[in-house]
Design a protein around this nucleic acid. Structure first.
Lengths: 207, 207
DNA sequence: GTCTATAACCGGATAGAC
DNA sequence: GTCTATCCGGTTATAGAC
């Protein structure tokens, strides 16, 4: 459960926040303890080291991410147009509720941090690679049928994912100038979903 | 000059690499010294502190980035279709030659690192904000003319930037599975540019 | 399970010789 | 400009009382 008040859970949630804000190397164990409102030694009692704590968080995050993709799998027999719209909406909704996930991954991804590499590899091998393959096939078939224009399926998937992630990656920059946007996040994300869906569907459908 | 062999330059280039790989907090002054093949004390001789060194790198990077946008400014009286294609190609070419820039920024962007915030703010105030405004106007006018479909101009710009950046952000993940792509980076980026241009132009042009 | 005290180490920074 | 030696503060981690 997300909001269980056990010491163990409090540490995990606090640690996630601190790792997002400071990165692995910038995160301080005493700051995690302070935010979780527990004694610093308790972190070592439940998790053995900073490394092990970080790995727990990564695994937990990927588990949520995977769960989200399973939802999409169930609707994979929709027609391609509805499927793409559903993917965009589900992905952005997920990110709205789990904004820490892309942040924490992109912070560590360039490090060759062995823990990060390991967890990503496992994630791909334990089902995610399979799901991506299904999407690729789906696009290739629609492309072959003439339901959509002929496109490079992998590039297309990258494009959708890129646009979905963008706001969550850029948020710190965007919020500096958010006064110029004058709308709240909910409104902005609604527009975002609409703009992406609009571009992709119009870009893919035969002329 | 990029490849000048002065001690000062060697430090800057080595530091850039180390900051990309390890982030600000993970970067070690002795590692920078080792890679630059200079004595550690020399870093403090030329740059006064880790903080000042980092700021130099950020400023240098943004200067290059700004120079790139000035090139685009000169072609802003092209028709919208050609302009968008030019932006995508120029941006990706720039990123191919300066892949460290988005990495270093996205590593620190969630930190509220005061140096990063300051440099970004200056960058926007010293001309970049102006250029973005010009693009927004350009899209709004084309949209009004009926040259392109009615779209949200800011969302559209975000979409293009998102797709351009994607490969360079995801590279560490993509390279883990690059055997499945079986093509080299040059070929891949050519396809990437083509796929993005294709999607955006088909997505924007009136049906 | 919780807390205090402290060990053991490491990294940024500087002093000062050459 | 370059190098060696070293200081000082802070960080992970543990020992051990309760």
């Amino acid at each position: 459960m997300e909001t269980q008040d056990t010491t163990r859970e409090k540490i995990l949630i606090a640690a996630r926040d601190v790792f997002v804000e400071r990165g692995y190397d910038g995160a301080r164990m005493h700051e995690i303890a302070a935010r979780a409102d527990v004694n610093k030694a308790m972190i070592y009692y439940y998790y053995n080291s900073k490394d092990a704590l970080f790995e727990s968080i990564l695994k937990d995050s990927f588990k949520r991410f995977f769960a989200y993709f399973l939802v999409l799998k169930n609707i994979a027999d929709m027609d391609i147009e509805k499927l793409i719209a559903a993917i965009i909406h589900a992905h952005i909704d997920f990110l709205e509720q789990n904004p820490y996930l892309p942040k924490i991954i992109f912070r560590e991804i360039h490090s060759n941090n062995p823990v990060t590499s390991k967890v990503i590899r496992e994630f791909f091998n334990q089902g995610f690679g399979e799901i991506v393959t299904q999407f690729v096939d789906k696009i290739d078939r629609a492309s072959g049928n003439g339901n959509i224009r002929p496109v490079d399926s992998i590039q297309t998937i990258w494009n959708v994912v890129a646009m979905n992630l963008f706001y969550f990656m850029m948020k710190p920059i965007i919020s500096v100038f958010s006064d110029r946007l004058n709308m709240d996040e909910k409104e902005l994300l609604t527009r975002r979903k609409q703009a992406i869906t609009d571009l992709v569907l119009n870009g893919l459908l035969p002329r």
